[in-house]
Every structure is written in structure tokens, then in C-alpha cells.
């Protein structure tokens, strides 16, 4: 059952990414290009996604997940250096190619060689990240 739910959730996410235009790197780079031809689409995507998600968080109160277990613990209040440094590094890469992890997976079937090069590099980055984090903490 968990797997079916995961598949359905993934399909909604992937479908939403394509419909919203977030697999088009020009739209993402357009959103970040505040000094150029600014494209506000991403704000509508984020806003739209907040609505079902905010309702879902309210529904978690006093309940358990459908398939058992527990809901995630409340968010940690502590920010920490890793959150800031990591987000800045991510933002730089996000702007360079106009891709973040979700859309890079959603575009696998039509992104061609360029997308695969990005994916392999992203995988390599994720693979070394625990070591980078350990170096930062040292």
C-alpha cells in the first residue's frame, strides 16, 4: 500500500511539474532573472502548491498516517550554518542550469543528453555531500 501511495504521490508531483512549466529551464531562470525579463510563473506554482499542502498539515493534527507509523516531528527551530551554506550553494547551481532536483527527474523522458549530464553531476554532488558536510563540521 505504501508503494502504491508513493507512486500516486510521485505521479501527481511529476505531472504538476510538467503542467506548471517548471521543467522548462527558461521559466526557472526567468524567475531568478530579476534584472532581465522577469517571469513570475514560479510564484504561482509555489502558491498553488501551498494550498493542498497547508491543508494536509492541518489534517495531520491528532491523526496518524493512513499506512501507520507517525507523522514527521515538528520542524526544528534551530537554523544552523549548514542550512544557510547549503541553500546558497544550491541556489547558485539552480540558477546556472535552471534545474532543481524534482524537475530534473520529471524531465528524464524528454530532457536528452544535457539533462543526463546534469543528473550524473547532481548524483555525484549528492554522493560527496556527506563528506563535504563532515569537512565543514570538522
Amino acid at each position: 500500500m505504501k508503494l502504491v501511495i508513493a507512486l500516486i504521490a510521485g505521479m501527481l508531483f511529476g505531472g504538476g511539474l510538467v503542467v506548471s512549466g517548471m521543467t522548462d529551464t527558461a521559466k526557472v531562470q526567468g524567475w531568478l532573472d530579476v534584472f532581465g525579463a522577469w517571469d513570475p510563473t514560479l510564484a504561482f506554482v509555489m502558491g498553488g502548491a501551498m494550498i493542498p499542502m497547508a491543508i494536509a498539515w492541518v489534517l495531520t493534527k491528532g491523526r496518524s498516517p493512513m499506512t501507520g507509523g507517525n507523522f514527521p516531528a515538528p520542524p526544528e527551530p534551530k537554523l544552523g550554518r549548514n542550512l544557510i551554506v547549503g541553500s546558497v550553494i544550491f541556489g547558485m547551481g539552480w540558477a546556472l542550469a535552471g534545474l532543481c532536483p524534482g524537475p530534473s527527474i520529471a524531465a528524464i523522458s524528454f530532457g536528452g543528453t544535457s539533462l543526463w549530464i546534469f543528473l550524473v553531476a547532481m548524483g555525484a554532488g549528492m554522493f560527496v555531500a556527506p563528506r563535504v558536510r563532515a569537512m565543514m563540521d570538522a
Binding site: 504538476g16 506554482v45 502558491g47 493542498p52 489534517l59 499506512t67 501507520g68
Partner: peptide
């Protein structure tokens, strides 16, 4: 963007409420 966003949020809601 808005319609796609709603589906993205729906996916997140299903994953959260279904699997936690």
C-alpha cells in the same frame, strides 16, 4: 503554473497523509 502547483501540493499531501 497555478494548476500545476496545485497538483504538486496534492502529491505532497498524499505522501504526507498516506505514508507520513
Amino acid at each position: 503554473g497555478l494548476i500545476g502547483g496545485l497538483f504538486i501540493g496534492l502529491g505532497g499531501a498524499v505522501f504526507l497523509l498516506g505514508n507520513g
